[in-house]
Amino acid sequence: MKGETLPDLTAFGYNYDHFGRDHPVMDQLGGVRVGEPAPDFTATRLDGQQVTLSDFRGRPVVVETGSVSCPMYVSHVESMNALAFRFPDVSFLVLYVREAHPGQSIGAHRDTAQKAAAARRVLDEESEGRTIVVDDLAGTAHRLYGEMPNTVHVIDADGIVAFRAMWNDPPAVEAALRKVLAGQDAGTVRSRFRPAGVPTVLRVLRRAGSGAIWDFVVAFPRLARSHIPGQTPSQN
């Protein structure tokens, strides 16, 4: 029809409604690799100002992906805030991506205002102290960095990826940063899969609302098989 706004099918496909049913098994990290230039991207701060990754060139940057419905991300907020405090010369960014576990209360994003509102809940309810930058509705930046719910990338001052992990591991991030700041190879740092505790999982999924817990329970056996706890190398 004339004047009708057609839905962004790419964005709607990216913002799945049900974790596990609409999302592939998360057993590998794609996107930019260690030793490659970090792809530039544009995102929006919570004050509405647009920023690019290249704005932070000249100092190391830590980019972690997350969402208010992601127990893994929420479980590391306190540790990562402390890390940011200990490394004042490093820029710490939270790239707000699609909802990891959408439910009735916090659903899949259908417009940018909804996504920004969800990101503000991280600030208000989880005391996030790092700079939150919100990806666009289609997940353009997220796709460049592997499309996982809680990845972390350490980028050196020259804009090269020095370390990455499929799941954020704050002690490994600290070890990688120390190597980067000392001019050493951070790609040898090993990361550990550190699952969120049951209380955090339940709190976050209940916040997401009806459907989120059930979807997680159904998908859990496949997730458990894909992520055996223990030491694993950072994915170069």
Rank of each mutant, 00 (worst) to 15 (best):
Q49C: 15
P60V: 00
L95Q: 00
V97P: 02
P37T: 04
H76Q: 14
D40S: 13
P71E: 06
T44V: 09
V61R: 01
V63S: 04
D17A: 14
Y16I: 01
G30W: 02
R98W: 00
Q104S: 15
F19M: 12
G31A: 09
R98Y: 03
G35Y: 00
L53R: 01
T65C: 13
T52M: 14
T44M: 13
T42M: 12
V25W: 13
V25Y: 12
L93Y: 01
M80D: 03
C70D: 07
E99C: 07
H76C: 14
G48D: 12
T52E: 15
P88A: 12
Q49T: 14
I106E: 04
V63Q: 02
H18I: 14
G30R: 06
S75T: 05
C70V: 08
G13F: 06
L29C: 01
R98L: 04
C70K: 00
I106N: 06
V77W: 11
V63T: 03
V97G: 04
H76E: 09
G20Y: 05
V90H: 06
Y16N: 11
N81R: 08
V62T: 00
L53Q: 02
M80K: 03
D89K: 15
D89W: 10
L46I: 02
H101S: 13
V61Q: 01
V51Y: 05
L83G: 01
E78W: 10
A82Q: 09
V90W: 04
A82P: 01
V32I: 02
H18N: 15
F92Q: 06
V77Y: 11
A100W: 01
M80R: 08
V63Y: 05
L83E: 06
T52D: 13
G103N: 03
I106R: 07
H76S: 14
L95D: 02
V97H: 06
G103E: 00
F12L: 15
F12M: 15
A82E: 15
G35Q: 03
D89S: 13
H101K: 15
F12T: 14
G13T: 04
H76A: 10
F56L: 08
A11C: 14
F92C: 09
D27H: 12
V74K: 00
S91W: 01
E78L: 07
R98M: 07
Y73C: 08
G66D: 04
L53S: 02
F41I: 05
D17L: 11
R33N: 09
A84D: 06
V32S: 04
P24V: 10
M72W: 08
V62D: 02
L53V: 00
Q28L: 08
G66I: 06
R57G: 00
F85H: 12
F41Q: 09
F92H: 07
P71W: 02
A82W: 01
N81T: 04
M72P: 01
T52A: 14
